[in-house]
C-alpha cells in the first residue's frame, strides 16, 4: 500500500516535471499543435514514442517484458473522435490537464470535473457500449496482422516517426503563438 503510493507519486513527479519543463502543458502549445502552427508537442511525443518503441521491443525480445498491443474495435474510432473533440475544446489532454492543476490554472479543475462526469457516464452506460462499439475486435499486434517480423516493422516505424519529426522541425523553425 505505502509502496504503491510512493511508486505512484514518484512516477507522477518525474512525468509532471518533464511535461512542464518541456513546455508541452502550455495552452497555446496544445491548441497551436491542433491548428498545425506549433509542432513542439508532436516532436516531443514522437521522440518519446520512438525511443520507447525500441526499448519495449528490445526488452520484449529478451523476454524481460511481454508486450500488450491494444486491439482495434469501434470504440477506438468513436472514442478517439470524442476524445479529440474534448482535446480541441479544452486545449489539454488528460495528462497535461492534471499538470495544469499544479501550475494553478483554475480552469483545469473544471476539466477534471468534466472528465469524472464523462467516466461516470461511460460506467452507467457500460452495457450499451460493450454490446455496440466494443464487441468485435481485431488483433492489435501489427506484426501478426500484417504477417511481417516485428524487427522489420520496428525500424520502418522508427524511420517514419523520425521523418515526421524532421518535417515538423522544418515547419517549426520560426516562433508563433497562433
Amino acid at each position: 500500500m505505502i509502496l504503491q503510493i510512493i511508486i505512484g507519486i514518484a512516477i507522477g513527479l518525474i512525468f509532471g516535471y518533464a511535461l512542464q519543463r518541456t513546455g508541452v502543458t502550455k495552452y497555446p502549445r496544445v491548441t497551436g499543435m491542433l491548428l498545425l502552427k506549433d509542432f513542439k508537442i508532436l516532436k516531443f511525443m514522437l521522440t518519446a514514442v520512438t525511443f520507447s518503441m525500441i526499448g519495449f521491443y528490445t526488452l520484449g525480445s529478451l523476454g524481460v517484458i511481454e508486450l500488450h498491443p491494444k486491439p482495434l474495435d469501434w470504440g477506438k474510432v468513436v472514442g478517439g473522435l470524442i476524445f479529440g473533440i474534448g482535446m480541441g475544446l479544452l486545449g489539454y489532454c488528460p495528462g497535461t490537464l492534471i499538470a495544469r492543476i499544479g501550475e494553478a490554472k483554475k480552469d483545469a479543475w473544471v476539466g477534471l470535473l468534466g472528465m469524472v462526469l464523462g467516466i461516470l457516464f461511460f460506467a452507467v452506460n457500460v452495457k450499451f457500449f460493450k454490446t455496440t462499439l466494443m464487441t468485435k475486435n481485431i488483433n492489435g499486434d501489427i506484426s501478426v496482422v500484417l504477417g511481417i517480423n516485428q524487427w522489420v516493422i520496428v525500424p520502418i516505424a522508427a524511420l517514419v516517426f523520425i521523418g515526421i519529426i524532421y518535417l515538423a522541425n522544418k515547419v517549426d523553425d520560426f516562433k508563433k503563438n497562433f
Binding site: 482535446m87 488528460p94 476539466g111 468534466g114 464523462g118 467516466i119
Partner: peptide
C-alpha cells in the same frame, strides 16, 4: 471538453 475526454478515453 472534459466530459468528452472522459467518455472518449
Amino acid at each position: 471538453g472534459g466530459f468528452c475526454l472522459g467518455l472518449g478515453t
